[in-house]
Design a protein around this nucleic acid. Structure first.
Length: 596
DNA sequence: CCGGGTTATT
DNA sequence: AATAACC
C-alpha cells in the first residue's frame, strides 16, 4: 500500500496492484537507455528495453523492489507477475517458483494462454463453468477461443460469454479495484460430526464469541447475521452448504460494536432460530461445518436515524411552544467524578474485552472545546493517536464505557431542556444513543420536558435500575443485569415504556399541530404490515430507516420456526431457556407504541 | 478440502 | 434472503 494504494486482494496470499501511475512517473525521470528488466521475461533469456516495452520494464523493477522490501521488513518471500492486465499477471507469476518474478511481453500472450493445460486453469473459469463448457465440447483454451460467440451466448448470456471468451484470449479489461474494508466477517469450524443441538449451541457460541470480538475491533455495526451449515453426505463433494440469514436487531448490533459481551447470547438466540429453519432436530442429523457471518456492515447509525431526532426542535414554532425546563440541580450538579476515562478503554487488552480499569479522572463527556473541534467529536485522550479508521471505533468505545458509568455522571452533562428524571427512565441503549447525539456539535435543544407532561417516578424503584446498582471496578456489566433481573426489571421496563410512549405522543402532537402539511410520510407502507396497535400516522413520521427496521422486526416476530419443535427442547440447557423465555426481542421499539 | 473472502442471480 | 459460483 505504501508503494501504491491501488491494491486488490485476491484470496489469502495474492494481490493485484495497478502501478500505471508510478510507472509513468518513473518513466519521465528516466532515459530508456538506462532501463533494464528485473527478473525473468516469459520465454526469453534477455530483452533490450525499447519504447514498446519500457513500461513493463519499469514494472519489473518496481516488483523487484517491493519483493525486496517485503523480505527485509517481513521476512516473507514470494513471486510476482508483471503484465498488462490482471489475468496475464496472475498467470505469468507462476512461471518461475519459488521467490522469483516474471514479466510477460504482450506478443507472448498467445503462447502463455495456450500453455495452459485446461480451461480450469484460466482464473475466472471455475468448476461449474468448466463442466458447462465440456458439455459444449470445449476442453482446451484454444477450443474456447475459436468457439462461435453466439453459441456461447446461448449458454452463458451476453456479458458472461464475452468475458470468458476474452479470458481465453488473455484479454481482461477489469480494473484493479481496492476493496477497502471487508464487506463481511465470518468465522467457521469444521468437524467430523455434530449431531445434537447442545453441540451446535456450544460450537456456535464459540464461533460467535470470536466473531463478535473481531467485529468489535473492526468498529462497524453489522446489520445482517447468517448461519451456515454443511450436512454430511456420503458423496460429500465439497459443497452443499445451506444458510439462513436475518436482520440483527439494533440493540444487539450496538452491543456488538460496543464490545458488550451480552451480544453473544442474543446472537446465539438468533442462531438457534435460524438453525431450526434448516434442521428438524426431531430427526437425526449429521453436520460437518458451522459458519457464522456478519454482513451489511455499516459505519454507524446516522444522526438522522437517531432516536434523538425525536427530542430535538423541528421548527422555531415548536421551540416556542415548549417551555424550557430547568435542569434539576440536585441531580445534575453532581459529578464528573467518573473513575473511567476514554484513554483507558482504548488500552483494553484482548483478555479484558469488555472490562474497564478504574483510574482517577473527571468527565467522560466532551468539554466545550472538544465539542467545537470538528475533527475530534469524541472525547478521546489527546495522547491517544486517532487512526484513520477509528473515529467510529472511538464512538463505539465511548458507548461501552458509558454503560459502566453511574447514573449521576450521565445526568451531569445532559443538555438544558432534558429532564433527567425522564432520561433516567429510558433504557440504557437509548440513553447512550441520546448522549452520543448530544455531543454532536449541531445538536439542537430538546423540545420536551415541559411541565404538562407528567411522568411517574418513584425513586424507591430506582434501585432496580441497573445503572443505579453498585459498580464493581473489576467487572462492570450493567447491560448484563439489564437482561438478567427479569422479575423486578419488567416492572421497571413497563414504566420506562409508558414514559417513552408519552414522549412519542407529545411529539406526534407537535408535528400534527405545526408541520403535518410540510412533512409527507417518509415511506409508503401498506397498512397491513403495521401491527394493529401502532398508530399509522406516528409510524409514518418515523425516519425511513427506523420504519424499515421496525417492519423487519415485526415480520420476524411471527414465523420464527418453520419446523415447529414440540418437545425437542428437552435437550436445551439453561442458556437456551433464558433466551427462549425472553422472547425474540425484549427491547423491541415496538414496545414504545401504545399497547392495545 | 480448510478458513476465510467476493460478486451475481434469483 | 438464499444460493451459486468464483478466488
Amino acid at each position: 500500500m505504501s508503494y501504491c494504494p491501488l491494491v486488490e486482494r485476491l484470496g489469502f496470499d495474492e494481490n493485484y496492484m495497478d502501478v500505471t501511475e508510478m510507472v509513468e512517473r518513473r518513466l519521465k525521470e528516466t532515459r530508456i537507455s538506462d532501463l533494464s528488466f528485473s527478473g525473468h521475461i516469459y520465454k526469453h533469456e534477455c530483452v533490450a528495453v525499447d519504447e514498446e516495452n519500457a513500461r513493463l520494464a519499469v514494472g519489473s523493477v518496481i516488483a523487484a523492489e517491493m519483493r525486496q522490501a517485503i523480505f527485509s521488513m517481513l521476512g516473507l518471500t514470494g513471486c510476482a507477475g508483471i503484465a498488462s492486465n490482471k489475468l496475464l499477471a496472475k498467470l505469468v507469476s507462476g512461471t518461475f517458483k519459488p521467490n522469483q518474478q516474471t514479466t510477460l511481453l504482450p506478443y507472448s500472450t498467445a503462447e502463455l494462454m495456450s500453455s495452459l493445460t485446461g480451461l480450469i486453469r484460466v482464473p475466472g473459469i471455475g468448476y461449474k463453468t468448466r463442466e458447462k463448457l465440456k458439455a459444449l465440447g470445449l476442453v482446451s483454451v484454444r477450443d474456447l477461443q475459436l468457439f462461435p460467440l453466439p453459441d456461447l451466448v446461448k449458454e452463458f448470456g451476453e456479458v458472461n460469454a464475452k468475458r470468458i471468451q476474452n479470458l481465453a484470449c488473455g484479454i481482461d479489461e477489469s480494473p484493479v479495484t481496492s476493496a477497502g474494508p471487508p464487506q463481511s466477517l465470518s468465522d467457521e469450524d469444521s468437524f467430523k460430526k455434530i449431531s445434537t443441538l447442545e453441540e451446535v449451541v456450544k460450537k456456535t457460541e464459540e464461533l460467535l464469541t470470536s466473531l463478535t470480538e473481531r467485529m468489535h475491533k473492526d468498529g462497524r455495526q453489522p446489520h445482517t447475521f447468517r448461519l451456515t451449515i454443511r450436512r454430511y453426505t456420503v458423496t460429500n463433494r465439497w459443497f452443499s452448504r445451506e444458510s439462513r440469514q436475518c436482520p440483527i436487531p439494533n440493540h444487539t448490533g450496538i452491543k456488538i460494536t460496543c464490545g458488550n459481551s451480552e451480544a453473544v447470547p442474543q446472537l446465539l438466540s438468533l442462531s438457534v432460530k435460524l438453525f431450526h429453519k434448516m434442521v428438524d432436530t426431531r430427526e437425526p442429523f449429521h453436520l460437518t461445518l458451522l459458519n457464522v457471518c456478519f454482513s451489511n456492515l455499516q459505519a454507524k447509525s446516522s444522526s438522522k436515524s437517531s432516536i434523538a431526532s425525536f427530542f430535538t426542535h423541528k421548527s422555531p414554532t415548536t421551540t416556542q411552544m415548549t417551555s424550557q425546563r430547568q435542569v434539576e440541580p440536585d441531580l445534575c450538579e453532581s459529578v464528573a467524578n467518573s473513575q473511567f476515562t476514554q484513554a483507558d478503554v482504548l488500552h483494553k487488552e484482548d483478555k479484558t474485552w469488555n472490562s474497564i480499569k478504574p483510574i482517577e479522572h473527571t468527565s467522560i463527556f466532551p468539554t466545550q472545546e472538544s465539542q467545537t473541534q470538528p475533527t475530534s467529536i469524541n472525547p478521546i485522550s489527546p495522547m491517544q493517536p486517532v487512526s484513520e479508521h477509528s473515529r467510529v471505533t472511538n464512538m463505539n468505545i465511548r458507548e461501552s464505557c458509558m454503560s459502566n458509568v453511574p447514573e449521576e455522571t450521565l445526568c451531569s452533562k445532559l443538555p438544558p431542556g432534558v429532564d433527567p428524571e425522564v432520561f433516567k427512565l429510558l433504557p440504557e441503549h437509548i440513553q447512550m444513543e441520546l448522549i452520543t447525539s448530544f455531543q454532536k456539535k449541531d445538536s439542537a435543544e430538546l423540545i420536551y420536558g415541559s411541565a404538562d407532561t407528567s411522568f411517574e417516578d418513584d425513586p424507591a424503584d430506582h434501585s432496580t435500575l441497573t445503572f443505579n446498582q453498585p459498580r464493581t471496578p473489576e467487572r462492570c456489566e450493567p447491560a448484563l443485569n439489564y437482561c438478567r433481573n427479569s422479575a423486578s426489571h419488567n416492572h421497571e421496563l413497563d414504566k420506562t415504556l409508558s414514559s417513552a410512549q408519552s414522549t412519542m405522543e407529545l411529539h406526534s402532537g407537535l408535528i400534527k399541530d405545526t408541520e403535518s402539511h410540510d412533512i409527507p410520510p417518509t415511506t409508503q407502507t401498506p397498512q397491513s404490515d403495521i401491527p394493529p396497535n401502532v398508530d399509522p400516522y406516528v409510524f409514518s413520521q418515523l425516519p425511513a430507516d427506523v420504519q424499515r427496521e421496525l417492519l423487519t422486526e415485526w415480520k420476524q416476530q411471527k414465523p420464527v420456526l418453520k419446523i415447529p419443535s414440540k418437545h425437542s427442547h428437552k435437550t436445551s440447557n439453561t442458556k437456551d431457556k433464558k433466551n427462549a423465555a425472553k422472547g425474540s426481542q425484549c427491547n423491541n421499539i415496538l414496545k414504545y407504541f401504545k399497547p392495545n
